[in-house]
């Protein structure tokens, strides 16, 4: 039994919820599905709802996009509850800035979270 499938992760994202998994043995949280904890190798992972607020861990602005995307746009890793999720960023975020998950992007065939700099 998987605590969280990709389909469930994607469907929740479309409905405005960011899901991850937490290892009940070592406590590590991941912002994407895993069947086994990378840290301690436990299979006891449970689904967890991640907070909507996070902090920018790193970011860059893509000036030369791949096919199917229109640039420029900002991409970054956002720390939410100790986990890092790859996201689209809005509002000119810098490392350390507080950002809020408030939209979903579907340009690439699968959904991606959009975080915006907190007012």
């Amino acid at each position: 039994m998987s605590a969280l499938t990709h389909e469930q992760w994607a469907e929740a994202l479309r409905e405005g919820d960011l899901l991850g998994v937490t290892c009940t043995d070592c406590g590590r949280t991941y912002a994407t599905p895993f069947l086994v904890c990378d840290e301690c190798k436990s299979r006891d992972l449970e689904r967890t709802a991640l907070p909507r607020e996070g902090v920018v861990y790193s970011e860059t602005t893509i000036q030369v996009p791949p096919r199917d995307f229109d640039g420029p746009y900002q991409v970054g890793m956002v720390e939410v509850d100790g986990a890092k999720v790859m996201a689209r960023l809005e509002g000119g975020a810098a490392i350390g800035d507080r950002v809020v998950f408030d939209d979903v992007l579907e340009e690439g065939g699968d959904p991606a979270p959009v975080f915006r700099v907190e007012e």
Binding site: T32, S58, T60, P66, V75, A87, E107, G108, D110
Partner: peptide, 23 residues
């Protein structure tokens, strides 16, 4: 890059290494 958790953001390979380098 990850098909489901990175590619949908529009991340490119210069982008991957830009994220690592900026940190």
């Amino acid at each position: 890059s990850d098909r489901h958790y990175e590619q949908p953001t529009g991340l490119t390979f210069p982008g991957v290494f830009a994220l690592l380098t900026k940190r």
